[in-house]
Design a binder for these strands. Structure first.
Lengths: 150, 150
DNA sequence: GCAATCTGGTTTTATGTTGAGACCACTTGC
DNA sequence: GCAAGTGGTCTCAACATAAAACCAGATTGC
C-alpha cells in the first residue's frame, strides 16, 4: 500500500476496505493464510513474491491488525504469521472472488481448485444476498443509502 | 493491470480473479458502475482518478468483458460504459468488501453509507456461507480441494 | 454557422512502486 | 563449530501512477 491517493477517510466502506486490502498481493497472502500458510518462506515460495515485497506486506497487514505474529508452533525460535479475528472476517471476500472466478474465468472443463465442506467433501453453496426477511436480492434490488449516523 | 507478474494461468480462481480486478481502481470503478455511473467524466470527478489512469482502466475492463460501451442514453453522440453480465457478477464481491469494512474499519457511530433493500429501505442481511444442504459454514469448516476436472 | 465550451481522451514528465538479486544476522542441523 | 536454512534489509533498474498540458470531435450559445 503506501499509495499516492488514500481513501481512508471515505464514507464508503468499499473504498475504505480497498484502501486496506486493495492491493495485488495482500489478498493472496490472506488467501494462503486461510489455507494454513504461516511462515515467511512458505508465503514466499508459494506466491513467488519478492522478499522485500513480502516483508513490507506482512508488516503492513500486521500493523493493520489483519495478521499477527505468534511463536512458531513447532517450538523453534522463529515467528509465524496468523490471521486475527479481523483478518478471518475477510473469508467471504475470498469466497466471493473465488465464485466469480469459477463462473467467468475458466473455460468449461478447465481444472481449478474448489472450496468444499470439510465434513462432507461436497462443494459449498453459492453466496447469495438476501433481505433481512430472507427474500433473495439481486444487484438491482438494492440501493446505497448515503452516510448516516450508523 | 499490465503487471509484472501475472497469475492468469493459476489454477486457483481467487488468484485469477485478482489478476483481472485486483488492482486498486478497478473495483472502485465497478462499484460506481453499480451505482449508476456511466460517463467518463462522471467516473473521473467521482473518483478523483487521473484521466490517463481512467482511460486505461476503462479500456482494460472493457477488453476483459466486464464493461461494455453503449450509445449514450440521452441521445447524444457520446458513449457510455455499463456493466456486462460478467461485470454484474462482481456484485457479491463488492457486498462482501462493504460488509467487512463496516464491521472492522469504522469506529462505533462513525457515519458511512449502507446497502439497503430498495423495496423496504431496510439494510440487507449479512452474507453467509452455507453447505449445499443449508448448514452454515465458518472459515474453519471448509477446505480447498486442489485442481480437478471441474 | 461559427466561436466558445464540453467531452473524452493522449502525451509528457516527475515521482513512487515493484521485482530481482546481493547481502547479512541469527538459528538450526549435524 | 560450521554449513545450511530462515527471515529479513538494501540497492538498483524497470515499470506504473499522478498531474497537467494538449488535442480532436461534439455540443451549446447566440
Amino acid at each position: 500500500m503506501v499509495k499516492r491517493v488514500s481513501l481512508w477517510d471515505a464514507d464508503c466502506p468499499v473504498a475504505r476496505s480497498l484502501d486496506v486490502i486493495g492491493d495485488w498481493w495482500s489478498l493472496l497472502i490472506i488467501r494462503d493464510a486461510f489455507d494454513g500458510v504461516r511462515r515467511f518462506s512458505e508465503f514466499q515460495t508459494g506466491l513467488g513474491i519478492a522478499k522485500g515485497m513480502l516483508a513490507t506486506r506482512l508488516r503492513d497487514l500486521t500493523g493493520r491488525g489483519i495478521l499477527e505474529t505468534v511463536p512458531a508452533s513447532d517450538g523453534s525460535a522463529y515467528r509465524e504469521y496468523v490471521l486475527t479475528e479481523k483478518g478471518r472476517g475477510l473469508f467471504l471476500v475470498i469466497v466471493a472472488l473465488r465464485q466469480w472466478g469459477e463462473d467467468h474465468l475458466y473455460r468449461p472443463g478447465e481444472p481449478h481448485s474448489s472450496l468444499v465442506d470439510a465434513e462432507s467433501g461436497a462443494p459449498v453453496a453459492r453466496l447469495e444476498l438476501r433481505a433481512r426477511n430472507g427474500r433473495p436480492l439481486g444487484w438491482n434490488d438494492t440501493r446505497v443509502r448515503k452516510t448516516d449516523g450508523d
